[in-house]
């Protein structure tokens, strides 16, 4: 099945939950549709990244939220898409067969309104070529489920345990920054069987149109992403690494990464892989540039592997 081509410099090869990724870059859920969309752009290749996380998928299809769904804010953007997706059966039966698993790894992103939903979607993906399953317990843009689980460590753990029971594929718990104690949440998710943690999902926010006095975003609130949230994300990764590091649980560090330097900061804070999303909207070639920058950084410092940077923060 998934034979990864060595298109990126060898030192960028990254081990993640027993999978070899050809780069530590992971394209984040919701930014690249179901994996093919960005290939419309000449020069963009899924082979430049270690993995692509597909759009959040639910048991039944969803139309998503009313417009506006996106809006630029200082050093970032708000989004409230509302998990528009065709439902798990269409994704597994019709979309996955069309993806080129020789180019990169594909991870699913599962979401639901109930614990049972999460388990059902996970089970559906278990019997598919998907390489890993991300559990989206932190989507801020739906009325039920998502962050209403992720903001409470006990609930997060219950969702993870229910999904764990359905699959032997690697499970990634995607954690919300919109909670009091992310360390406790990380610990309980690991104990419930998470193989990895994604830190962080978007930060909740809003924007107001002063002309018509209405919220800009149709859903009123949205998730803030982009460089504006990078310092928040970096601290959360640092905090979660204190829990996950000793347990050998890898972290996908994400939130505002647009350059190799940003990626290196996340690696030093304890991330094994780095998520890129909003940066693609700025520059569709962002991943190629980050790969090059990472390889240069390693070469200059005579390091053999990107893994030597993980958690190498000097305190």
């Amino acid at each position: 099945m998934a034979v990864t081509l060595p298109v990126t410099p060898a030192p960028l090869n990254t081990d993640f939950c027993g999978l070899t990724l050809n780069s530590p870059i992971v394209l984040l859920s919701g930014c690249v549709g179901f994996g093919e969309e960005y290939t419309r752009v000449d020069g963009f290749s899924n082979a430049d990244v270690g993995a692509v996380v597909l759009k959040g998928t639910t048991r039944e299809s969803r139309l998503g939220n009313q417009p506006h769904r996106v809006y630029e804010t200082p050093a970032g953007m708000l989004n409230a898409i509302g998990l528009q997706n065709p439902g798990m059966d269409r994704v597994v039966d019709h979309i996955l067969p069309g993806l080129d698993f020789a180019e990169t790894r594909f991870f699913a992103n599962v979401c639901g309104s109930t614990i049972d939903d999460y388990a059902a979607v996970t089970k559906r993906f278990d019997d598919s070529p998907i390489d890993a399953i991300e559990i989206n317990i932190s989507c801020p843009n739906i009325k039920q489920g998502g962050v209403s689980f992720g903001n409470y460590p006990d609930m997060s753990a219950k969702v993870v345990a229910a999904c764990r029971a359905q699959t032997s594929k690697p499970i990634i718990a995607k954690l919300s920054p919109n909670q009091t104690d992310i360390q406790e949440n990380a610990r309980l998710c690991i104990e419930a069987g998470a193989d990895a943690l994604a830190v962080i999902n978007t930060v909740m926010g809003m924007a107001i149109d002063t002309e018509n006095r209405r919220p800009v975003i149709g859903n009123v609130r949205g998730g803030l992403s982009g460089p504006a949230i990078k310092p928040i994300a970096l601290l959360k990764v640092h905090q979660v690494y204190e829990i996950a590091g000793p347990r050998n649980i890898p972290i996908i560090g994400q939130g505002g990464i647009v350059s190799a330097r940003d990626a290196i900061e996340f690696l030093l804070a304890g991330a094994t892989t780095v998520g890129v999303g909003t940066a693609l909207f700025y520059d569709p070639m962002a991943c190629k540039k980050i790969n090059t920058g990472l390889a240069d950084y390693l070469k200059v410092r005579q390091l053999q592997s990107v893994s030597q940077l993980v958690g190498a923060l000097q305190l």
């Binding site: 919701g30 930014c31 690249v32 549709g33 969309e37 960005y38 419309r40 752009v41 759009k55 139309l63 998503g64 009313q66 417009p67 506006h68 769904r69 996106v70 809006y71 953007m77 989004n79 898409i81 528009q84 909003t278 693609l280 909207f281 569709p284």
Partner: peptide, 26 residues
């Protein structure tokens, strides 16, 4: 037109409601 983020179909940020033969779609 609609506010747009990626513009290549990746983010589903710029959707509008379109009636298909089978019902509403975004």
């Amino acid at each position: 037109e609609e506010y747009m983020a990626c513009a290549v179909g990746g983010c589903a940020g710029c959707t509008v409601e379109i009636q298909s033969d089978d019902g509403p779609t975004m």
